[in-house]
C-alpha cells in the first residue's frame, strides 16, 4: 500500500504550488503581420518584459495595442518576427502544454460533457481512467461545479462554461496560464464571482497568470502588476505595481485604487492611445 502511494506521487503531472517555475522573459520580442495589400503591420513593437514566477500580470489597453498578440506569442500561437520569449529559460517555439490557455470565446468542446472536457486535458498523462476521472471531478468541484459534470457546454451558462474552461486548464497545473479577455462576455455580477474563483484557484496552484483585458477595474482587482499598452505600433507604455491587499472590491474602492484607476484611464486617453 505504501509503495502504491509513493508511486502516485511520482505520477503527479507537475509539482503543485512551486513558485520557482513559470518565469517569462520577453526579450526584444516583436510581431509583424502581413496586412491587406501586403503592407506590414507592426502588431507588437520590440518589447522587453520580465514576468515573475507565480505572479498575476494584466495587459491592458485598447484594441490594436498588441495585448492579445503578446499573449499569443507567449503561448506559441503567433511566431515572432524578432527577439525571443523564454519560459524558464527555454525559448518558446510553439504550443506548449505547460502553458494553459483560457480563450476569449468558449473553446470548450461542445461534444464532450463538462467532465469529458476536463478529462481531455489529462489524457496526455499515463494515469488510469479512474484517476483521470477523480482528478477531473476534483477540479470541477474546485470551481464550484459539483453535480454539473454530466452537462454539456450547451446546457451551461456562460459563467459556468468559463469555470469548466478554468478547471480544464488548471487540472494539469500548468506553469503559466494565459487568459484573453476570458470574462468579456459575462455580465457584471457573474464577473465578480468569476474573479473570486479565479483568484482562489490561482492561489491554490500558483501559476504565473497573464491576463488580457480592456477593463481597468478588472486589471486593478486581479493583478499584481498591470502593463498598460497603446496602439500604433502595439507597445507597453507604462507598468504599474498594484500593492493593495486582496481581496479588492470594485464597490469598496480604496484611495490607491481610485488613484491607479484615474492614472490608467488618463494614460489610455492620451493621443496615440485611442481605440482604432
Amino acid at each position: 500500500m505504501m509503495q502504491n502511494a509513493a508511486l502516485k506521487i511520482v505520477e503527479e503531472p507537475q509539482t503543485m504550488t512551486n513558485t520557482e517555475v513559470g518565469r517569462i522573459d520577453v526579450e526584444n520580442a516583436a510581431v509583424t503581420f502581413k496586412g491587406p495589400k501586403g503592407k506590414k503591420i507592426e502588431a507588437l513593437a520590440p518589447t522587453d518584459l520580465v514576468i515573475d514566477p507565480g505572479s498575476f500580470v494584466s495587459l491592458i489597453g485598447p484594441s490594436g495595442c498588441g495585448k492579445s498578440t503578446l499573449l499569443n506569442a507567449v503561448g506559441g500561437f503567433v511566431p515572432l518576427s524578432g527577439g525571443v520569449i523564454k519560459l524558464d529559460g527555454e525559448p518558446v517555439t510553439g504550443i506548449n502544454p505547460d502553458v494553459g490557455v483560457v480563450f476569449q470565446q468558449y473553446a470548450l468542446f461542445p461534444w464532450f460533457t463538462a467532465l469529458g472536457n476536463v478529462m481531455f486535458a489529462l489524457k496526455r498523462f499515463p494515469i488510469s481512467k479512474q484517476e483521470r476521472r477523480d482528478r477531473a471531478m476534483a477540479a470541477l468541484k474546485e470551481v464550484g461545479l459539483e453535480g454539473r459534470e454530466a452537462n454539456y457546454p450547451g446546457q451551461l451558462s456562460g459563467g459556468m462554461r468559463q469555470r469548466v474552461a478554468l478547471a480544464r486548464t488548471f487540472v494539469t497545473s500548468p506553469k503559466v496560464l494565459l487568459m484573453d479577455e476570458p470574462f468579456g462576455a459575462l455580465d457584471a455580477q457573474t464577473r465578480v464571482v468569476m474573479h473570486e474563483i479565479l483568484l482562489r484557484v490561482w492561489e491554490a496552484h500558483k501559476a504565473t497568470v497573464i491576463f488580457v483585458t480592456h477593463d481597468v477595474d478588472e486589471a486593478l482587482i486581479l493583478s499584481d502588476r498591470a502593463h498598460i499598452m497603446s496602439a500604433g505600433p502595439g507597445r507597453i507604455i507604462e507598468t504599474m505595481e498594484i500593492t493593495d491587499e486582496r481581496p479588492r472590491r470594485a464597490h469598496e474602492v480604496t484611495e490607491s485604487f481610485l488613484k491607479n484607476r484615474n492614472h490608467i484611464i488618463g494614460l489610455l486617453r492620451q493621443p496615440g492611445a485611442e481605440d482604432h
Binding site: F109, K123, T172
Partner: peptide, 26 residues
C-alpha cells in the same frame, strides 16, 4: 480555437483528429 485548445491541452495529432476534427465536422 478548437484546434488551438486541443494542442495547448497536449493532444497529439491522432487525438486532435479523432476527438476534435471528426466531432467538429460531424
Amino acid at each position: 480555437t478548437y484546434i488551438r485548445a486541443a494542442r495547448s491541452l497536449g493532444a497529439n495529432r491522432f487525438r486532435e483528429f479523432f476527438e476534435v476534427v471528426v466531432p467538429a465536422a460531424a
